[in-house]
Every structure is written in C-alpha cells, then in structure tokens.
Amino acid sequence: MHGIPAARSMRTMLAVALLALGGCAVSRGDLGDGLPKEKIAAVKEGQTTTTEVLALLGAPASIQQIGDMTVFHYYHYALKHGTFLVFSRINVAGDDTYVFLDHAGVVRQVLAGNRTDRLTFQFWPFGA
C-alpha cells in the first residue's frame, strides 16, 4: 500500500504543517510604547525643561513628588512566549524610565531601563 508520489508529498507537507503550526507557537506582546533611545538621549541633565521633556517623551504614565523633585515615570513591558509540544515558557521584562525634575522644572536625573533588549524567546521551562 504505497501511495503515489503526489499523495506521499502531500502527507509530508501535512506533517510539516502540523509540526510548524500545531506543535510549536511563538507570540509576542507589548504593554505601552517603548520610548525611542534617541529621544531619551535628547533629555539632558541640568538643561532640559519640563516642557521639553513633555514634547520629547509625551505624557508620563504617572507623576510622583519625591522631596523637592517631581518624577515622571514612563514604562513599557514586553512579553515573549514560546511553546514546543508540552513545554512553554513566557518571559516578560519591563523598561521603566524616570525623569527627575527639580523645583525650577529642570531635569536633574534620567534613569532609563533596557531590560527588554535582553528578552529572548524560549520554550524550555527548566533551569535558569
């Protein structure tokens, strides 16, 4: 009971499709927009003002008062998911950016996270 070559290649294609589509999955998710690095770099400590920060980075997700400083907080979270057969792994990382402004409305410090740059797709759930 050997199939004709066309039927055999059809079965092979079906098997490959099952392997490619059914047995494994990769997906990606993002919460918030990442701030472009060049825009963060344009915020200069001791020079940039509140108005310029808002023009460059947009409205912050939250504003805090810490001592005599106002802190703008921006964030972006990224998710990478991989599944292969019975194994799944979901890696999530967050980039938090803080802009510290003094009482005169001038930037005193900029903290920018870049954890999402190191985020990888994995499916093996064991180990580190």
């Binding site: 392997l19 059914g22 019975v86 194994f87 799944s88 792994r89 999530v92 990382a93 954890r115 759930p125």
Partner: peptide, 20 residues
C-alpha cells in the same frame, strides 16, 4: 503524535518569568 504536536496534550510544564 498529531495530538501531541497540536498541543492537545494531557501534560504541560509552563514557566513564566518577569525580569532577571
């Protein structure tokens, strides 16, 4: 084999991590 490959399996290991 088809069920295993399509993810309809009776057994799963899932790991979720946030940051390092």
């Amino acid at each position: 084999v088809a069920l295993l490959l399509s993810g309809c399996t009776p057994i799963t290991w899932t790991r979720v991590t946030l940051n390092q």
